[in-house]
Amino acid sequence: MKPSPFAYAKAKSLDHAIELLARPDGEARLLAGGQSLIATLNLRLSAPKLLIDLNGIGGLAGIAVKNDMVEIGAMTRHAEAERSADIARHAPLIALALPHIGHAAIRNRGTLGGSIAFADPAAELPACLLALGGEIDIVGPTGKRTVQADDFFKGLFETALGPRDVLTAIRLPAAANDTRVGFAEFSRRHGDYAMVGLAACAQVDGKGLGDVRLAYFGVGNVPLRAKKAETRLTEGSIDDAVKALASDLDPSGDVQATGATKLHLAGVLLRRVATQLMEVRS
């Protein structure tokens, strides 16, 4: 299938992109990596009147570590992040998650900002951002603002981004010595969207895990924190944490698995990820 007709504009600057978004019919879409958007256009599942290409705007890509935060420009490609020593060292959860995203050709083109903004509930990066308690920089008609990951994902493919907003960067706390991360997912085939996945982050102290953040994906309309399980895990009981998932999560079935299976798999993931979190760091 071929896309419905649309117009194409290459934004010269952020301001230009925001100006272009101001179409009266609101039917403009931002084009970042395009790895999800163009597929939906080709399937005629969406038919915007205008595509605004962000790829020509300078300064939107790149990885920097400052003030104990890792800042990743929205247009940073997955492959670039995969190769980045800064990501490997300061954002190990992202490094763990990246190889699970699509395939080589997809990662060459797909962007981190695009993935967060698209907010597919089965995607890896939104959950990672949530697990890390990251923040999202947004520029809109009224200027810049920053939104916490916990407040960003609103509903199925809905985020805190307004119709005239552009996501410009994400920021994550850089991993400290005491930071532990874990990541695992079940997907039927390598690179597929996950049936269920879990991104996790915690701080270790002498006794156990603190500040546990468990972010599930593929189990609801948005990436979800399993807050009761977080508490149980902080208290030191994996079994109780797994049990708590039944009240944290209520996944619906889809073509791959029933809701009950997804909930079960969420528990399996929790045991595996908890083990990763508790591993002594070499």
């Binding site: 049936m195 791959q256 698995a257 029933t258 299976t261 909930l263 079960h264 798999l265």
Partner: peptide, 13 residues
């Protein structure tokens, strides 16, 4: 034989 069916056979779900 999906994971779903195998888990059911094992009575895990």
């Amino acid at each position: 034989f999906t994971p779903d069916k195998i888990l059911r056979a094992l009575k895990r779900v």
